[in-house]
Design a protein around this nucleic acid. Structure first.
Lengths: 231, 231
DNA sequence: TGGATCACTTCTGGATCCCATCTGCGGGGA
DNA sequence: TCCCCGCAGATGGGATCCAGAAGTGATCCA
């Protein structure tokens, strides 16, 4: 227990905070500040920042420090294309390899999503709440991770995680929040993917997944371009 | 000039040596040895090893050090599937986005490969030489990187590089070396991809590329399984 | 003689120290 | 008054120092 190196813990915590926006894009990460907060020396912090740099999460400027990378609309589209290809592969492979437990997890995520949609449908206030965001993200994650696990390809999971780290996915929630049209579309796309998997249609599953991820990332790209135009 | 951090240089050099087999799989990387060789202190070396760990190239065992990761046949197949999906996407995108210079680079790589095949065809000795290996790998790299550049997706390039780092590709040369059947097949697959791109057939290009990478990685997987059975 | 134990060696992980470089500010000169 | 230069503080990069963990081998006891 506790056999994890300090630098690893720092990496994970910083990843988390950057991903969920707690540490905003463009901010500088200072050795001393982070070291102090974690109650450690600067050495493991430096190692952590080098790792984040290698992962493309921050940029290290010599003698200046590490700064959190932002993402243009173009970045979002490019990452969307990559993620679509990878998740499309996952869906295609899952058709052959997914097991019953994973199928059930997938079905459950669908039901939960539908139930949440029902609940928040005619309730704009609730739909914008943090609780609602939590549910969208959780059911969404469960659905995708069931298929990912069903692909039986561990390196594929690693690659998708890698892409995910480069793109703060959580910045996608405000895109959906309160937009019942997009939420409904999301559900329909999920159902289309699930149906193809149930029916053992590998090409169909892949194509449905690719279309799904591309449309989602297109929405996100537009959102990003919109918000960056406003400042 | 020389504005690159020492740890970055160490990372790149170690990547290179591990990729080309100069540092064998399973060997331990010791701080002091590497530090001494590079004429630096252990600090940047430690940072470099953390980065290699994050990239999945080495495993860090607490209080023991870093060891170069090996690859089972299964790993090779999984990575092959991932790479096939990514390069397939590159081919698909290249159909729409590739420019004339990149087309010419692609054609030139094809011609060079064919010329090399011709030259070494009836000459088993030359075909096994380091010079021959050099030419196979170079023309192969040129062909794929032309298409990659033609995809116009920088994040895609990054992801493929990431997969490539996890799998010492150069270990694939001995698979081809002197095997004119595989080399010829390789050339034919490349030509099929190039034709689809020329004819603006996105699906065809993707499928040809996926088939190409999968068959190549299947050969590599068999080779790996064969050699690991021998010890 | 075989096996367990304990001291020694080696090496990593984290902390501290030192130095180079960059930024911001204030004073002096045009 | 404005610009430029230089100095001081802040910050990061690299080296060194120290403590603790794991392997190794010798020694002692059954």
């Amino acid at each position: 227990m506790g056999d994890e190196a300090i630098s690893e813990r720092v990496v994970e915590e910083l990843q988390r905070r950057i991903l969920n926006g707690q540490i905003p894009v463009g901010s500088w990460l200072r050795h001393s500040t982070i070291a102090e907060e974690f109650g450690v020396s600067r050495t493991p912090v430096r190692e952590a920042l080098r790792v984040l740099h290698a992962q493309g999460i921050v940029t290290i400027v010599r003698n200046r420090g590490a700064r959190v990378n932002g993402h243009s609309g173009r970045d979002v589209r490019e990452l969307g294309e990559v993620r679509a290809a990878l998740e499309g592969l996952a869906a295609e492979l899952a058709v052959e390899r997914i097991n019953d437990a994973q199928i059930r997890q997938m079905e459950k995520a669908l039901e939960d999503f539908a139930a949440a949609l029902e609940k928040y449908a005619g309730n704009p206030e609730l739909a914008l709440s943090a609780e609602a965001n939590q549910r969208w993200s959780e059911t969404n994650r469960d659905f995708h991770s069931a298929i990912l696990a069903g692909s039986g390809n561990h390196h594929l999971v690693l690659s998708i995680e890698d892409v995910g780290r480069r793109l703060p996915l959580n910045s996608s929630y405000p895109v959906y929040a309160g937009n019942s049209r997009l939420l409904k579309q999301n559900l329909e796309e999920h159902q289309r993917i699930a149906t193809a998997i149930r029916e053992h249609d590998a090409d169909g599953a892949r194509e449905a997944m690719v279309a799904h991820i591309r449309s989602a990332s297109e929405s996100l790209a537009r959102y990003v371009e919109e918000t960056e135009r406003r400042r």
